[in-house]
Amino acid sequence: MGLDAFVYCRCWQDGLATPCPIGPVGYDEDGWLALVQAGEYDGAADNAFYAWMTGDACPHRHMELVSERVSNWAGVRLFQQALRAAGEHRFPTLAAALPDANGGSLPADRAAVVLAELDAIAGTDRITDEVELIDEATGAVVMQYVEAYRGLFMFGPGFQAGVDPDGFFVLDRADPPVTLFRAVRFGQRPLPGDRVEFTAGGTRTTVAMRPVGEHGEPPPERLAVRTRSRSGEDFAYIVEPLRRLCAASVATGNPVMWC
Score class of each variant (00 low, 15 high):
Ala112Glu: 03
Val196Thr: 02
Glu29Asp: 11
Pro220Ile: 06
Glu40Asp: 06
Val225Cys: 14
Pro218Ser: 06
Ala5Trp: 01
Leu83Thr: 13
Arg69Val: 15
Phe159Gly: 01
Val163Glu: 04
Pro176Cys: 14
Leu115Trp: 02
Ser229Gly: 13
Asn47Gln: 15
Gly43Thr: 10
Leu152Ser: 08
Asn102Met: 02
Ala95His: 08
Ala74Glu: 14
Val114Ala: 07
Thr128Val: 11
Ala111Met: 15
Asp129His: 10
Phe153Pro: 04
Ser67Lys: 14
Val142Met: 08
Ser105Ala: 14
Gly253Phe: 07
Glu136Thr: 08
Asn47Trp: 03
Met154Pro: 01
Pro255Asn: 02
Gln188Ile: 13
Glu217Val: 13
Arg10Trp: 07
Ala148Leu: 15
Arg228Trp: 03
Ala116Tyr: 06
Cys259Asp: 14
Pro59Tyr: 07
Val196Trp: 01
Ala44Tyr: 10
Pro99Cys: 12
Ser249Leu: 11
His62Val: 09
Cys259Glu: 15
Asp14Trp: 10
Gly151Arg: 01
Val256Leu: 05
Tyr237Asp: 02
Gly103Ser: 05
Gly75Phe: 02
Gly39Asn: 13
Thr199Gly: 01
Arg204Ser: 10
Arg173Asn: 11
Ile238Lys: 00
Gly187Thr: 15
Ala101Asn: 11
Leu83Trp: 00
Gln37Phe: 06
Thr252Trp: 00
Pro218Glu: 03
Glu29Leu: 02
Arg110Val: 10
Ile134Asn: 05
Arg204Lys: 12
Asp4Asn: 10
Glu197Gly: 04
Arg90Ala: 04
Ala44Asp: 11
Phe91Gln: 12
Arg222Met: 10
Leu33Ala: 09
Leu133Lys: 00
Phe155Ser: 15
Val66Pro: 01
Arg210Trp: 03
Pro219Gln: 04
Ile121Asn: 01
Gly87Pro: 08
Pro219Phe: 00
Trp258Asn: 06
Arg204Ile: 14
Gln37Ala: 05
Phe6Trp: 02
Val113Glu: 11
Asp4Glu: 09
Pro255Thr: 13
Ile238Asn: 00
